[in-house]
């Protein structure tokens, strides 16, 4: 190590381990420049210690305490708020809530799974009296209804008399 390396150690002398301090001590014994620097930094540290000894305190400590407590009391107007905050920070409640949410998720998953199986079975085997919505069946039924309606259209003309219509229908059924 050269003098430049020791420079940092001299400035950080108070932070060094006993072994590191001994190494620096050894070096400064044989180096005038580093000894001068060590001397100067130690004097500076003494001056800084003197400044640190001058305690800085608020002018009116009691007034400051009152000001702090007024602000704090303002925030704790609601005891319920504190109760709920406290409750939500309790580990047992956190565990219970996470278990409950897990249970809800599992229930919904099972429910949707069952529903999908049931709906598949329902489509395969429609039960008696149920209505199946199938576009093909719907089209067939619609065309049949259309055929039946056209059967009577010939007889139900607004330009013919009722007598004619009755006669016509009788003939159709014959």
């Amino acid at each position: 190590m050269n003098c430049n390396d020791y420079k940092k150690s001299i400035f950080l002398y108070a932070e060094l381990s006993t072994l590191e301090k001994a190494e620096v001590d050894m070096h400064i014994k044989g180096c005038d420049n580093c000894f001068a620097l060590f001397h100067a930094t130690q004097k500076m540290q003494i001056s800084l210690n003197r400044i640190a000894q001058v305690k800085v305190a608020p002018e009116n400590a009691a007034k400051l305490t009152r000001a702090i407590m007024t602000k704090i009391n303002g925030t704790t107007a609601s005891k319920w708020h504190h109760f709920f905050t406290l409750s939500f920070h309790s580990p047992s409640l956190k565990i219970s809530l996470s278990l409950l949410s897990a249970l809800i998720i599992v229930t919904f998953s099972l429910e949707s799974f069952n529903h999908s199986i049931l709906s598949k079975q329902f489509l395969k085997q429609p039960s008696q009296g149920s209505v199946t919505l199938d576009s093909k069946v719907f089209r067939e039924k619609a065309s049949q209804r259309k055929g039946k309606a056209s059967f009577f259209v010939d007889c139900l003309s607004p330009f013919k008399s009722n007598q004619y219509s009755l006669e016509c229908l009788k003939n159709k059924f014959k």
């Binding site: 305690k55 608020p58 400590a61 400051l64 305490t65 702090i68 704090i72 704790t76 005891k79 504190h82």
Partner: peptide, 15 residues
Amino acid sequence: GDAVAFRLLVEAHQG
């Protein structure tokens, strides 16, 4: 929620 206890902490550490 004990504000009195907190006041003691304030008094001890505000300096």
